[in-house]
Design a protein around this nucleic acid. Structure first.
Length: 462
RNA sequence: GGUGGAGUGGCCGAGAGGCGAGGCUCGGGACUGCAAAUCCCGCUACACGGGUUCAAAUCCCGUCUCCACCUCCA
């Protein structure tokens, strides 16, 4: 049994075969850093992080590139609006994205190239495209790709060139065909620019990804990912540029679906409520990740706070079991065969989670039965699954905020509560339940939950 | 106009011809002094109308509704 993945290019689930055995190169279209990340952006990060983790668990050495687009029209627009230099705007939002990725335990990319750091590579690519006769400069400082010259164009989106509406990214009068797209845009006065043989200007949207994918992954690589809405035009144009340059480019194209709200794609009109930073005021990062990762990556995820809370509740139940299980033995990261089959089938996370709930039930029963070998076994399978999904509660990524300071505080707290619980046990022993309940109420008012187990009471912060 | 997707129980969310996914909520029970936690039982859904088949949520034909992309998009 080996990994199969849905390939947008073939519209089918195909057996994955690495170009170089044992190694995988992935290029993921990252953020255009022009606003705070919302949960749709971060879903893409989480979905591809799960892919990456699964490839690693499957024994591949993964080179994962996720770019940062730090120059584009919106950033320039925002800079005017925020009365700040464009690079300050880009940096500010890049940091916001980095914070969000970290909060959701998305692994840092192997390399995270910025567009503005790769102008040299872009110019080389453009020179090559001009030499090969696919790009032309009308003389106004722009450079265009002549799409009619391409042997194949629009194979990813399955559209016909003549059905497309003409591009609106520049003055059509200078183009040979209205569908030709800009590789490079001449700069207007006051805009940032870089010198090129065709004039001073800045990169078109698509060029950077072709240039950077080539720089870090070579002429041909395994997987290219991004959101569904990038298929056209962005990915089509990346393919056009790269293949015109004579490169094989990506073999497998993967696209994650959106997070929707009220059935609609998230947009700015929804305001700030679905910004990651805001959501994290209501649930923990691990819980938001669990929610975003639990639907299949190719399915639309209909967001609601109710669904988020519900998902968090069910995650806490799993987490609670792992903590209880840990008291009975060492819980490992164990990848069961069933889990592997599910993940190998185009990352069937929902199927995997159905398995997990079975392990959870039998693990909890095993605690009741005192069968601790079984407890640890089930817990290890669950931890293995959570580990792949990036939601392992024992992962140090999630206790980064627990400084040594707070762990010594926890010891003190443990001592205090242990004393109170002792008093309660004594009250219960003499059947003074009113006193016992008074102690429990006092503790629970502080946000601490008490569970009476066979081995005595245990407490946790709720 | 072109291209692609979706409609599943109170809610979320899988599946893609036949053995009732799963979760959350809710109802009942077990355990408990009472709780909490946990376990057990219950709640037989696939937009609509036809058709194919021994068998359809799944395939075919038609209809309705919704969403997305067509050069800013995760």
């Amino acid at each position: 049994m080996s990994l199969s993945l849905y390939n947008t290019a073939t519209r089918s689930v195909d057996t994955f075969k690495a170009i170089t055995p044992g190694k995988v190169g992935i290029y993921l279209c990252g953020a255009t850093v022009q606003a705070e990340p919302h949960i749709g952006h971060i879903r893409s990060g989480v979905n591809f992080d799960i892919l990456r983790r699964w490839l690693i668990h499957s024994g591949y050495k993964v080179t994962f590139i996720r770019n940062v687009t730090d120059i584009d029209d919106k950033i320039l627009h925002k800079a005017v609006h925020e009365k700040a230099p464009w690079w300050a705007v880009a940096m500010k939002y890049e940091r916001a994205f980095t914070d969000a990725y970290r909060a959701l335990n998305v692994m840092p990319p192997t390399y995270e190239p910025r567009a503005t750091g790769h102008i040299t590579q872009m110019i080389s690519l453009m020179e090559r495209l001009v030499e090969r006769g696919y790009a032309y400069a009308p003389g106004n400082g722009d450079l265009y790709l002549e799409v009619r010259k391409l042997a194949s164009y629009l194979t990813l989106s399955g559209q016909k060139l003549d059905d497309l509406l003409p591009a609106g990214d520049a003055d059509d009068s200078v183009k040979r065909d209205p569908r030709d797209f800009a590789l490079w845009k001449s700069s207007k006065p006051g805009e940032p620019s870089w010198p090129t043989p065709w004039g001073d200007g800045r990169p078109g949207w698509h060029l950077e990804c072709s240039a950077m994918a080539h720089a870090y992954l070579g002429e041909e690589f395994d997987i290219h990912g991004g959101g569904l809405d990038l298929i056209f035009p962005h990915h089509e144009n990346e393919i056009a540029q790269s293949q015109a340059a004579g490169y094989g480019f990506a073999r497998v194209w993967m696209h994650n679906a959106w997070v929707t709200a009220s059935g609609e794609k998230m947009s700015k009109s929804l305001g700030n409520s679905l910004v990651v930073r805001e959501i994290l005021k209501r649930v923990r990062g691990i819980e938001l990740r669990w929610y975003l990762g639990s639907a299949h990556y190719r399915s639309m995820l209909e967001f609601s706070f109710e669904a988020l809370e519900e998902s968090a509740t069910s995650f806490r139940r799993i987490e609670g079991f792992l903590h209880r299980a840990k008291e009975h033995g060492e819980v490992h990261v164990l990848i069961s065969d069933e889990f592997k089959s599910a993940m190998d089938d185009d990352l069937a996370v929902p199927t995997a989670l159905a398995l997990l709930s079975g392990w959870l039930r039998s693990g909890n029963s095993a605690i009741t039965d005192g069968n601790f070998t079984a407890v640890v076994e089930e817990a290890s399978k669950i931890r293995g699954a959570l580990n792949v999904l990036g939601c392992d509660p024992f992962d140090s990524a999630f206790d980064a905020d627990k400084s040594s300071d707070s762990s010594s505080q926890k010891e003190v707290l443990d001592g205090l509560i242990a004393g109170l619980l002792q008093e309660r046990e004594e009250a219960r022993a003499r059947k003074d339940f009113a006193a016992a309940d008074r102690i429990r109420d006092r503790i629970s008012t502080l946000g601490i939950t008490i569970e009476d187990t066979a081995s005595g009471p245990r407490w946790s912060i709720s």
